[in-house]
Simulated assay, not measured.
Amino acid sequence: MRPANGDGPGASFQVIGAVAVALLLLLTQTIFIVPAGNVAVVTTLGKVTGGQRSPGPNIKAPLIQATSLFDVRTQVRPEQFSTLTKDLQVIEATATVKYAIKPSEAARIFETIATDNSQIYARIIQPSLLKALKSVFSQYELVTIATEWNSISELVQDKVAEELSKFNYVVVQGLDLTGLQIAEEYRAAIEQKQIADQRLLRAQTEVKIADQEAQRYQILNSSLDDQVLYKLFLDKWDGQTSVVPALPGTPGTSAPSVIVNGRR
């Protein structure tokens, strides 16, 4: 006899298979994996719900919830720029900034300024970086910038960090300025100034040393008297010299007497 539905066992297997596939699809829509070095932002019907999700397996409501990943590892991004100095000279260089998104701010970033990693630099880092570069370099003349490049690089980093702290989205971990380019005629003038500064520093050092020597001799000269000189002579006397100064301050003598060949 055949089953009433006329399909037999094959139909049951088909139903079971369909249910299994549906459950598998539902599971893939429910469980998602956040890779190491990333956090996920979950939205429910387009609205951010809850905080960021940490690396590892996570659960979301199927169909109505979606996820967006943000890389929170250190990012390194070079930025070529040109700007004006205080004396209105154009310089070109490369600023390489190192930064990282604050994991706790991923949800706020998604809500207010960027919905994926590709937008972070252009919308958050770059505007603050260019503003800081313009602000710092406009305070110094070209010669100062060329000779104090490392110090100015630190000032730019501090300024970028200050600008970004207003929004509190990211952490600046470092900034390097490289590849300074200036007009050739100004480069020669800067080199001449550096040479002149080195000569001036050398001359100042020599004057300082001479002043110290003069002060030392002045102190030594003021401390010398007959008693000290006599003591110094005795310290160096070999006991055989035929001319020896008498002890200073001998009564009845207006000048130090001497002993010559054993006689006064």
Rank of each mutant, 00 (worst) to 15 (best):
T112G: 01
I152E: 00
L45K: 10
Q194W: 05
V41L: 03
R199S: 09
N38E: 12
S128Q: 11
Q181S: 08
E185S: 14
D158P: 03
T94S: 05
V42A: 01
L175M: 07
L180I: 00
S222Q: 15
Q181A: 09
K159W: 01
S222P: 05
I113T: 11
P127T: 05
V258H: 11
D211R: 14
V48S: 10
S82R: 12
I182L: 14
M1C: 05
P3D: 15
L164Q: 03
A36M: 07
R199N: 13
I16Y: 08
A196W: 08
T115S: 06
I125C: 02
V21M: 12
E184L: 10
L129Q: 02
V258K: 14
F70Y: 15
S242L: 12
G46A: 12
Y186G: 00
T44V: 08
G239E: 01
N117C: 04
G6L: 10
G17L: 14
L155Q: 02
F70P: 00
S128K: 06
I259G: 10
A214S: 09
L133Y: 00
N261Y: 15
K60D: 01
G249I: 02
Q194V: 12
A146S: 07
E92M: 15
G10I: 12
I59M: 10
E148G: 11
P9R: 05
N5W: 15
L200D: 07
L201F: 06
N261P: 01
Q14S: 13
D7P: 06
G239Q: 05
V21T: 09
A61R: 14
Q218P: 02
V207W: 05
F13V: 15
A214F: 09
I113N: 09
L25K: 03
A95N: 01
Y140Q: 04
I16D: 09
T44N: 13
A122G: 12
K166M: 07
F167M: 08
Q212S: 13
W237F: 10
L175Y: 01
V21G: 13
N168Q: 07
R202N: 09
N261R: 05
I109Y: 02
A210P: 07
I190E: 02
L234A: 07
D158C: 02
T74N: 10
T30R: 08
K131L: 14
K193Y: 04
A95E: 01
V19L: 15
G51Q: 03
V143L: 11
S254V: 07
P245I: 00
